[in-house]
Structure formats: structure tokens, C-alpha cells
Amino acid sequence: MDTTLSAVRAEFPILEKCTYLNSNSTGAFPRGMEAVFQRYSQTLLNWRDEAWEGWWADWLGYMDAVARFINGAPGSVVTDTNLTTLLGRLATCFDYQSPRNRVVTTDLEFPTVPFLWKGFGRYGAEAVVVPSENGRMDEERLCAAIDERTLLVSLAHASFATGALVDLAPVLKRAREVGALVIVDAYQSVGAVPIDVEALGVDFLLGGAHKWMCGSTESAFLYVRPALLSSLRPAATGWIAGENPLNFEPARDWANTARRLASGTPAVLPSQLSRVGLELLAQVGMPTIRAHSLRCTARVMERAEEAGLTVVTPRQDSRRAGVVALRFQGDAEVARRMVARGFICSYRGALRVAPHFYNTLEEVDRFMDALVAEARREKA
């Protein structure tokens, strides 16, 4: 582990108490969050309305910091409490009238996505679900489903269950050929995999802070390609989406930034908390984080295969994000026992191991020693 990563590791107190490899579920919280809580508490205990001036600046600053992190332009990101809220609000910007009313998605999406598009069926949206093979998406099959009837393509960059990555480039190319827009759910990849929205040319990208970005559980974000902003007329916004909300006059128009997709009074504490982890990620840099992640996940797969455990996650570096999913006899019970022993992982149809930039290869080996022993005990 290089010196930069070693220094950052000291910022995560939970690592002193357990072996934490659960970042795909909830990232470790940095100790700098404590000062944010204390500052927020003091502000409330000594309340003056002037606090909103600082809070407003903090919120706008965090959104632009997220934009920089994914190489987006200032004003291209808006935050809210969760991805579902933002995706639903974005979905109200479109007319689902035949013949261009199809929403192409996959069977690998987090439950939010199919649930939401099913709901928009009442407004004319027709969901086209492309099936996966062995938990992985065939991009050729996905592209074949995108045609002139497609209004939107809505897909996950990385599978929440296995960490399998989708190659976005051919999907974006095909969508542009037929005039469709692409919505990428990057909740399971941002912070573990470098993402450059400008280079990709992605239309919309959603993510959240509480996994690989080491932030608050109530902080999701939506990136909008700037050229699209003026065309978006959301039906479910609040007063903060107005062009000048702090004058408290009746809203005449939406903001000319991604803030037009905001709701009501913003959740300022989650953005303040999430800024701490984001700054640590930016300090280390995504190339370093990605290289370390690939080393750690490769070690997990190597140790698992040696022990005869089934690795569900793709082996190729370019095809996996930050988590390794394993299946074997009694895997759910083994996951429970591992957590009870202080080896923190999670189970979602498979046992998931998710080292991050604050973990070491030695930790990975300790975890895998315990996991292999528990798996053999379960099989015996």
C-alpha cells in the first residue's frame, strides 16, 4: 500500500474496530464527519436565519465538487436525498407518446428502476427489458433493442449484485444514432471506477455518496449534459428549482442549471457530510483508487478460486467494478457468521466482498482466511 493510501486509511475510524470490506453496501465514514455534525449542531442550538447564507453556498459548492469529480461542467449536477427521487423527477421531463415511447432497460437494474418505469407506464412509457446472461449484459443484445421507437435507455453502469460493468461506449453510440437519450445509474461504480462524463458524452448520470464515495446515506446526485438543460421541463420540482428562489417571490422560470431538477428545501447536512469523503477521494485520485481496487479484488478472486468457491463477478479488469460476488453452499449463513466475527461483508443473493482504497492486501488475506475456513465448516 503506497504512502498516500496509508495516510488516508487513518481517516476511517471503523478500520480500527473490524475488517471492513462492505463498501458496495455502505462506505466507511471518515472521521472528519464528526466535526461537521458538531458544527451543524451548534448552528441549530444558536439559530439565526443568516445560517442559510452559508448553507446555500455549501450546497452549491458540493454539487460543483461532484461535477468536477466526474469531469462535468459547473452547474451540471443537482443533489437530493436518493436516486429514486431524482430519477422520478427526471422522468417527468419527457412525453411518452407513440411511436417514440420506449424505455430500454435491463434485468440487472436495482429494484428502483423497474418499479419506477412500470409506474410511468400509466403515462405511456413502454419498458423494454433486455435479459442478461449469467448476471452479465451483452452490449450487442442491448444495442439491438435500441431503435427509432426508443425515447430513453436506462441502465446500470455496474450490477449491484455482482459488480459486472457495462461497456457504455457502444450503447451511447447506438442511442445517438437513433436519437435516444441515455440515463446511467452509476451508484455502484462512481468512486470505485473513474467516470468522465465529458469523454463519454453521457446524457444523464445518477450516483450517490454513501457507497464508494464515503459520504452520507441521504445524498444522491444527478448529472445533466449541459446542452440538454434548457429542454428539460420537470413536472415535480419545488421552490429551490426556481431561477432565483431566495427572493421568495413567485417562481417565473426554472434555474438555468441542473438545479431546475431540485425539489424543496435542500438537505444541507448530507451534502456537508459527503464533502468530507469526496475530498479524500479527490486527494488520492481515481487512477490510484482504481489500480488499488483491481489489485484487491483480484486477490479475493484468486483466493476464492483456490478454495473452490464460485466467483460470479467477471475476472477481466475492464468488466468489473469494486465488488466480488461469491456463491457456495451456505453462503448466506457464512456471511452472517463473518459479520458476527467482525469481518464485515454483505449478502444479496451472493456473498459480496468489497475492498476500497482504505483497505490493505493484508486485510483482504485475513478476510479470505476467515471466509475460507467458514465455508469449509459449512460444507463439512
Rank of each mutant, 00 (worst) to 15 (best):
A220K: 04
V193G: 05
K173A: 15
A220Q: 03
G191T: 09
E243H: 13
G201H: 04
L200P: 00
F221W: 14
L205T: 06
F221E: 00
P245Q: 10
G208Y: 02
G242A: 15
T217I: 13
G238Y: 03
M213V: 14
W239S: 11
L206P: 00
A227M: 08
L172G: 04
A186P: 02
A199Q: 12
D185I: 11
D196G: 09
V224A: 07
V193N: 03
L205E: 03
P226A: 07
R176V: 04
V190H: 00
S219Y: 00
P194K: 08
P234I: 10
A235L: 14
G238M: 04
I240G: 00
S219L: 12
L228C: 08
G191S: 10
D203K: 03
I195F: 08
A209W: 00
S216G: 06
S216C: 12
G238P: 03
H210M: 10
L172I: 13
C214Y: 11
V182E: 01
S230W: 03
V190S: 00
L228N: 08
H210Y: 13
V178W: 02
V182D: 01
L232I: 11
V182W: 00
K173F: 06
G191R: 09
P234K: 06
N244V: 11
G238T: 10
A175E: 02
K173L: 08
A235G: 15
I240R: 12
D196Y: 02
L205F: 07
L232W: 05
P226E: 04
A199G: 11
S231V: 07
